Each structure stands twice: as structure tokens, then as C-alpha cells.
Amino acid sequence: MSLHSSNSLSFEYYLVSAFSNRPFGGNPAVVAFLDPNETSENILAEVAATFKQPMTAFLSNEPSSGADVTVKRFSVRYFTAEREASLCIHATLAAAKTIFQTARLGEEVKLLEFVTKTHGVITARKVSDNPESWIEVELIRGDIAEVADTEKKRITDIVNEAFGKPLTIHHVAKGLGMYGHCLLIEVDEKDDIKNCQVSTKLGKETGYSINAITAQSTTGNEHFASRVFVPLDSLGGEDHVCGSAHALLGPYWATKQAISDGEEIRAIHVGRRGGDLRIFLVHGQPKLRIRGEATTIASGIFSF
């Protein structure tokens, strides 16, 4: 709820770590119940810059799309500490976790619809009625295309310099359509991407805003591992866990490892904070589902 007067503004907020059951794991997001349609963009940007978290999701209730009382709809806009983002899956998961956990819409609500500014409606639901249930977000799957040889060499040089050693690069592909800002780079599992110090140049020099470095998992518990590098200084050059990148990574590894339709694809993020994801897809279908846990760290009232 937000309170407006000529001199003040107050709203509830929650700080949530998405894709982890640990307070200091996964990817943090602020969930702010401040109407993004009625609040100026300057204020939204200032609030997000004040929180200085990887992402802040601003939410407000909208009329539901039908008579089904188990479905509720929200408007959402996403801001980093530096700029507005068109879509953020980890912040959407954090928002869904907060809404379900606080039962602010009643226990009967099972499905949430998030109306984004440019990417239509993203849905989220609880996997079970357990209060600690994983949250499942449905979104458009990402298709990829292999880059040209000259582009592959350019990117390979940037990656090797950023990692400080030559990596065995198996594949370089770019996202298509709404994922055109994404780059997928598969390296050999022996390159041990988890324990490498990586320069911020990887996120800044490729020309892509999401740079997913991925390898087959070495633990035997997951299908693949990844780290994601971005140009944002506020994130230190690395995204803690990127849900959008997994819209490409899931289909890529499902094809590469011949994973059956509907089978659980287990993914692990091996950056500093770690993260666990589960992906479900059917080959040929336009959408996929990403599941993750989320942990509430803090809550309060923001007033100014």
C-alpha cells in the first residue's frame, strides 16, 4: 500500500533473495508496493538508486482479467540502481514470493499475472501449498543462432582476456527476438568457471548486455552450470543469477543433452552467491517454466 499527500510518500517494501533458500545466496531484489503507473519515473529511479540492489520491482494491483478469484493481476516496472529494465525474472519471482507469503490477496489466490511495460504478461504460481514452496515463472523461451566466425573470434578474445587464460570454447550463439541482447558461450567443464576471477571487460566489451558463460555441470547433480556477466557497474560486472539467461540456456542444454519434454532440467549458478533453478519445457512450445526458491531478508516502510 502507498500513501500519498502533498508532502509525503510511503510504501511497503521487502528485500528478497531469489533462486536461493539462503539470505545471502541467489539474487537480491526489492519488492516495492508503489504504483508504477501513478508515480513519476524520476521518483521510481531515485527510489531504486537509494535501495541500490540489483533490481527493484514496483508493483500495483490491477483489475483481474476474468472472474476467476484464484487469479490476480499486477502492474510491474523494473529498475536497477542505474536505469529501467524491460524485464527481470528474478525480481518477478521475488515479487510472487512476497505476495504469496504475506497472503495480501487471500489464501485462495493461486496464479499471479504481472503486466510488464513492454513484454506483455508474465505469470507466476506456487508449486505447492507449502509456505516455503518454490515459485514457478512462465515466460517466452529463447531461440539462438550461432554467430559468424569473425564474431566468434572477437568474442573469444574478449572472454580469454577477461578470464586471464585461454578457455576451450565449444559454442558461441546470440539470442533472437526479445533476447537479442543475450550472448551464450559454452566452455568446457574443465575450465572451472566457478573458481575464476573474471574482469569486468567481459560484460562491457562484447556489445551484449547479458553474457552467459555455461558449461556442463561437474557435480553430477545438475545438467549445467553458468555465470552471467553484464555491463552495469552497480553489479560489479556480474549478475548474481539471471532468470532471462536461462530462457536460452534451458532449451540449449535440453537439445544438447537430449532431455525429454517435461523433464526437470537442473541448473546451478556458480557465481559468488550461488543459485539453483529448475527449468521445464516442451520442444516446439513457445514458453517455458523456471522454478526457484526465494528468501525474505528484510521488510519495512519507505517514507520521504
Rank of each mutant, 00 (worst) to 15 (best):
E205G: 01
E108A: 10
R141Y: 00
T118G: 00
T98P: 06
M178E: 06
K201L: 04
V172A: 04
E138F: 04
G120H: 03
K117V: 10
D157K: 07
K174Y: 04
K190N: 14
T150G: 11
W134P: 04
R104P: 11
G175P: 06
S217C: 12
C196E: 09
H171C: 13
L202W: 02
G164D: 00
A103C: 12
D149F: 03
K152I: 14
L139F: 11
E205K: 08
W134L: 13
K194P: 13
V147Y: 03
N160R: 08
A148E: 15
V172Y: 05
I99V: 14
D129T: 12
L176M: 08
P166G: 00
T116H: 00
G203A: 10
E113Q: 13
K194C: 15
L184I: 12
S209M: 06
Y208S: 12
T116V: 05
V172P: 10
S199I: 00
F114C: 02
M178P: 02
T116S: 02
C182V: 06
E189F: 11
D129V: 07
V172L: 08
Q216F: 05
E132K: 15
A148W: 05
N221Q: 13
K204S: 03
K174H: 07
V159N: 05
T214P: 09
K174G: 13
G207T: 11
P131N: 07
V159H: 08
T218S: 15
G177V: 01
S128Y: 08
E108S: 12
S217L: 11
Q216K: 14
